[in-house]
Structure formats: C-alpha cells, structure tokens
Amino acid sequence: MSAPVLKIDELVTEFTIRGQKVPAVRGVSLEVKKGKTLVVLGESGSGKSVMLRSIMRVLPRGAHLSGSITYNGDNVLDKSEAEMRRLRGNWISMVFQDSLSAMDPLFRVGEQVGENIREHRRFPKTTIRDQVIRLFGEVGIPSPAARTRSYPHEMSGGMRQRSVIAMALSNTPDILLADEPTTALDVTIQAQILSLFKQIQREYGMTMILVTHDIGVAVEMADEIAVMYAGKVVEYGDAKQVLGAPAHPYTQGLIAATPQKGKRGRLQVIPGQPPAITAMPGGCAFASRCRYATERCRKEMPPHTQLAGGHMTACYKTEDGQALAQLVRQ
C-alpha cells in the first residue's frame, strides 16, 4: 500500500449566511493514494463540491475552514495566499463543470493555457507556445496549432472542456481535481472525455479526485468511492465494495432509485428530500428518509464503522448488525 498523496482530516467548511454559521462540509476525512482515482458521489447540496473547493481554497469570502488537509507533509489550510498561488494550477489543478465560465471570453484559449505555464515557469514565449500546441494535441483537439488561436465561444462544449483539461495539465500536476467535468456534455462526448482522463492518468501517473452525482461515471472512473450526504461521508471504500455491496441505507437507496439497463416500470424510491443546510437535524441526517431509522439515529450521529477490506460506513444498522453485513457480502 502506497502512502496517501493527499489526506483530509475532519474538514469542516462553514459559510456565514445572515450572521448565521452554516456548515456545508461537516467533518470529512478522506485520503487518496498516488495514481488512484477517488470519486466523491453525492446529490446537490451534499457538500461534495464545497469539499473539493476547500482543497484548493477557492471559496467565496466568509468561508471558514477547519480541520486539516495534508499535502506533501504540509497543512494546506495553514498556507499563505502567496503559497497557495504557487500550489494552484501547478501541483494541484482543477477542472470545473462549466467550461464556458472557466475561461475568459476575451482571450484566445491558447493564451489562457499558456498563461498558466507562464505563471509558474520562466520559459521563452516560443517554448510556451510549443508546449500549448503539444498539450492540445495530447487532449485530442484536432489541428491543435490552429485551435490555440480560437476564442472560447468558437469551440463546442466538448472541445472547450478538452482545452480546460489541457490548462489543468499544463504544469503536470500531482493531483487533478474534477468537479462534475462531464455533466454538461452529451453521452458520446462524455465517453470521450472520461477515456481521455483515464489515458492522461496512465501517462502522467496522476492522482485524481472526481466529484459526480452520476453512479455510472463513478463506476467507470473510481478506484475508491466516498458517498456524501448532507455534508458528511456516509460510506467510503473500494469502488467494487461500495457499489457492489453497499452498506449504508442511503447508498443502497440511491442505487435502487437509479434507472439502469433492463429496468422497467416502477423504481424503488427514497422518500422525502434531503434536509436543508440551514436546518440540519441532530443525529444522522438521513434518518428522516431511512426505513431502518430508530430513536437512537435521530439523536446521535452514528460513528464510522469499519467493515471488511477498509470499507467504512456511518450507520448504526451496520454497527449493530455487522454479522448481517458480512453475510450479505459473501
């Protein structure tokens, strides 16, 4: 087992809304191993994107972070803004969902990708230009030299996302963070971009954290999966275990509620809706929608229970009935 490249410990991210502290991430601990992909799966409002942005510390003003995020032996949360600027886009880069707003409409895409190299390295202009063209070729943009001179609006969604990926790769980062990178794309283009991520990861040996709401994307990409609900990780482990033998009632419900090949007619649903971020219940946040919930679930937050093979879940049902969970696994 290799050491984790990035380790998140008890991360809490809070926003201040009308004088009230609102926690979006409520104590998340995760780690990613070198060259592996961690997929963070969750619905809107689960805090998955805020968690990802906390790693880069790109959050709106007034956000308050506590806990620790360890990268290369340092706590990212202790770094100064100047140190963060050396980190961002260099050692850790990020790809966002909306490629149109990720780029400046007034500059040619090639310049914008080059700017990220110039920010971190002293290279002559021609070297940078050659590098950008090489990067464009690598991410599969046809006639790369000509395309570096396009403006963002002149490109299709898929091509633009490719150039954003080129920008993220431009300083061969250690870690690539991707926030719903294919959600805005059509399925055939999504398939292309996902294979591109895999190919890049093989070539660069890069570590990835990918945030998505789509179980299909998680299946395709993940080595490990963390399922988030209402600001907490409710289940965490090897992808095959989490999706093949889900232990938490939320993960089970989510899988059952997703239409998939061969399913017809009615779906099994999770009743109700997630709690509002401003009105988090004490105890387990999923309790009001959970069919196994007991009095205890509504009062106390269940701790993480260790299952076989590093698989973890935060549920009293599995703590009490671990023998049962083991049985299901076999």
Binding site: Q190, D214, G216, V217, E220, A239, I255, T258
Partner: peptide, 8 residues
C-alpha cells in the same frame, strides 16, 4: 457511451 452500473 452510456456508463453502466455494473461495477465489475
């Protein structure tokens, strides 16, 4: 192109 939900 459509990802399946089959983990294997």
């Amino acid at each position: 192109s459509t990802p399946s939900m089959d983990v294997t």
